[in-house]
Design a protein around this nucleic acid. Structure first.
Ligand SMILES: NC(=O)c1ccc[n+]([C@@H]2O[C@H](COP(=O)([O-])OP(=O)(O)OC[C@H]3O[C@@H](n4cnc5c(N)ncnc54)[C@H](O)[C@@H]3O)[C@@H](O)[C@H]2O)c1
Ligand SMILES: NC(=O)c1ccc[n+]([C@@H]2O[C@H](COP(=O)([O-])OP(=O)(O)OC[C@H]3O[C@@H](n4cnc5c(N)ncnc54)[C@H](O)[C@@H]3O)[C@@H](O)[C@H]2O)c1
Lengths: 217, 217
DNA sequence: GTGCAATTGTGAAACAGTTCACAAACTGAG
DNA sequence: CTCAGTTTGTGAACTGTTTCACAATTGCAC
């Protein structure tokens, strides 16, 4: 049965993976799927799949598996993606533009409503259909537009100042691409995506000699 | 003492964090740093810092701490970032362009040498100083230029085909931005960066009611 | 030198996450 | 309706990671 417990980050991450597999299964006309099959698709053990789902309830039928459509909807509900979210982007440079140009976010319900910059040459112009506002207007505009998530794509040196404003505007979820440590109050959820660290991870593996890869099943 | 053991992904990730803190400390003129201070900067316990480092040797002085410069260099060696790497990007769209335009990679020793696309309008043109080659030339050019890492930034549907070619060219490290499961042989190291999943993680936290955040120390 | 304060390096303990294994529950065939 | 065959849901066992706690060192003041 459903238990109110701390859900681990890895479980949340895997829910997103299950969701994608289920969407694919639904498209290909499958009515049900068992934990073994779902596990195979995401390179996980069947037990892992069942345990993850069991934190949120019991959605399967013994002897049969899980109803694809229903489980997908249930995971969407758990992840909060059965609805739309109002997102703003601060910093319309390389990364900021790329994100604005990515139409899949929109399709998934993450609507990019506002974009901000502090460069006078950009402010006031349209970027892929989005008007770039002055970052001085950040706080009131976030409030006025009911923005729930902010993506921070400014240089590392400006990130903390931007985050502080975002927090003051009452936003509780921030995704930052700046490779720097940011302080936020307890109740604000912040994730930092650091691509350089991903490359360093690759380089660690190429450089060895410290590491031995585990055998794969 | 140094032990040849499986090093966890989280340890590798933290080494990257330490490296950044050490670089900052060096810049601000610090000669030494203790595990407590380093831990504070990265929101980790001192024990965690010492344990991570202990997998690779003993670099500190009891009673004093770690020599900033030396430890930084040692971590660079462990991560394989005390050298340069030849990187290629496949897919010069939103994300591919953003990465090519990001000068920090270059400064860190990740040199983007080649870029590929399959769009005739892009092939042959210069993009921020990089010539865009035809993806048909992928295999021979990767080989000829001694490319060690490839960043895949093509649509999900094309990603597996691209990865297959990259693998055939003998590349052993791949970073993919395509939100899809990719197959690679045992000896190839693949990481997938999925930004949509990051947003879903934010949304999970906003959506609750399933999760309670743990108190912070 | 001696002694005190600081801090490392590391087994051992505690905690967290994953896998096992099996009773329970269901399907579908006969 | 029964029974063989599946597959779930979940405590328990296991495995991996983090934190604790302390002996071992070292720096530095006097
Ligand atoms: N481009 C990449 O591939 C990449 C990769 C990894 C990390 N990052 C990080 O992402 C962030 C953005 O990188 P980028 O390459 O897009 O940089 P960029 O310089 O191209 O863009 C930054 C944008 O932010 C704007 N800006 C600066 N200060 C601002 C402020 N206080 N308020 C509002 N806007 C402000 C600038 O005018 C510019 O348009 C950086 O922190 C960078 O380290 C980028
Ligand atoms: N843009 C984003 O912010 C973002 C965010 C998350 C994930 N992604 C993922 O990153 C990938 C790229 O996204 P994007 O927004 O840059 O897409 P895009 O369409 O802007 O760019 C893709 C580029 O790849 C090229 N291409 C297509 N097939 C190719 C092939 N077989 N060989 C070589 N080149 C090929 C296209 O010509 C295009 O230039 C996608 O898988 C996308 O899902 C992008």
């Amino acid at each position: 049965m459903y238990k109110s417990k701390r859900i681990s980050d890895s479980t949340i991450h895997r829910l997103s993976l299950y969701y994608r597999s289920l969407a694919a299964l639904e498209k290909s006309g499958h009515q049900t799927v068992c934990s073994k099959e779902l596990g195979k698709r995401e390179k996980l053990t069947p037990a892992q799949v069942r345990k993850d789902l069991s934190f949120f309830g019991s959605f399967g039928t013994r002897g049969l598996g899980y109803p694809v459509r229903e489980l997908k909807d249930k995971i969407a509900e758990i992840l909060g993606i059965n609805r739309t979210w109002n997102v703003a982007i601060v910093g319309v440079g390389n990364i900021g533009s790329a994100l604005i140009g990515y139409k899949e976010f929109q399709k998934q319900g993450f609507h990019i409503r506002l974009a901000f910059d502090n460069d006078q040459r950009k402010i006031g112009s349209l970027h892929k259909g989005i008007l770039i506002s002055d970052v001085k207007e950040l706080k009131p505009l976030l409030r006025k537009n009911g923005i729930q998530m902010v993506i921070v794509a400014v240089p590392a040196g400006s990130a903390q100042a931007v985050v502080d404003e975002v927090v003051e505007a009452g936003v509780k979820a921030i995704l930052s691409f700046a490779p720097t440590n940011l302080k936020v109050p307890e109740e604000v959820f912040l994730r930092t995506e650091n691509m350089a660290i991903e490359l360093e991870h690759l380089s660690f593996h190429l450089a060895k000699p410290y590491y031995r890869r585990p055998a794969r099943p």
